[in-house]
Simulated scan of single mutants.
Amino acid sequence: MVKKVYTEFVLLKAQQGDTEALQELLNLINDKLSLFAGKLLSDESLAQDALQNALIAIAAGLKTLRSPRAFHTWIYRITSYKCHDQLRQLPINTDSDGLDALPSTDDTEPSDTELDVRAAIQQLAHSDQALVYLFYYEGFTVAEIADILKQSQGTLKSRLFHIRKKMQHLFGEQS
């Protein structure tokens, strides 16, 4: 929460033309957007290209953003669009390697259960991994994710339900 408030403070300074604040703002959001782009795209090079395009668009559009509170959903929406732009430029490819591991919740060595959860998440479709990342790791609400991904809240709730069921199946749990 404190980091979001600080980010919004830096955003206001950047919107006023402070170039140091703009650079700091881009540094603050870079890692999270990089992880998000990695969840949407299976190729690290494509994800980095999409991220660069997103950061350029974010920097260019800062002055048009009216509400600092909308900043976080706005940057994820832009990144999502740039990832989709990258996908449109590629031929269709059904081969997919694994994605990078999800971020750890702390600096300690992950437990076996956490490693199992990460492995199970990596078995999900890329779009489902992105949804899991936004909902569970970034803490966005379903309404915010609907705004980011331009999907209805009902669709996202249904997708989350099916993801949970698939995860239960992967762990052999019975509901």
Rank of each mutant, 00 (worst) to 15 (best):
P68Y: 06
T19C: 10
L35N: 08
G61D: 13
Q16A: 12
D49F: 00
A57C: 05
I56L: 14
A70Q: 09
P68T: 00
W74I: 01
L55W: 12
L46A: 10
D31K: 15
I58L: 06
L55E: 14
E24M: 13
T79V: 03
K32T: 05
A60H: 11
T19D: 15
I29Q: 10
L41M: 03
S80D: 08
Y76L: 11
G61S: 09
P68C: 03
I75F: 01
K13Q: 14
R77A: 12
N53F: 05
L28I: 08
F36D: 04
L35D: 06
S42H: 12
K39W: 00
E44G: 11
Q48C: 02
K32S: 13
L65R: 10
K13T: 06
L55G: 03
F71Y: 07
L12T: 09
D18S: 14
P68W: 04
A54T: 07
L55R: 06
A37K: 02
Q15N: 10
A47R: 02
L11Q: 10
L65G: 07
L28V: 01
N53H: 06
L25T: 06
L41D: 04
Q48P: 00
A37M: 04
G17F: 12
S67F: 05
D18N: 14
A50W: 11
Q52H: 08
I29A: 05
A54N: 06
L55T: 05
Q52S: 13
Q16D: 13
T64K: 10
T19A: 13
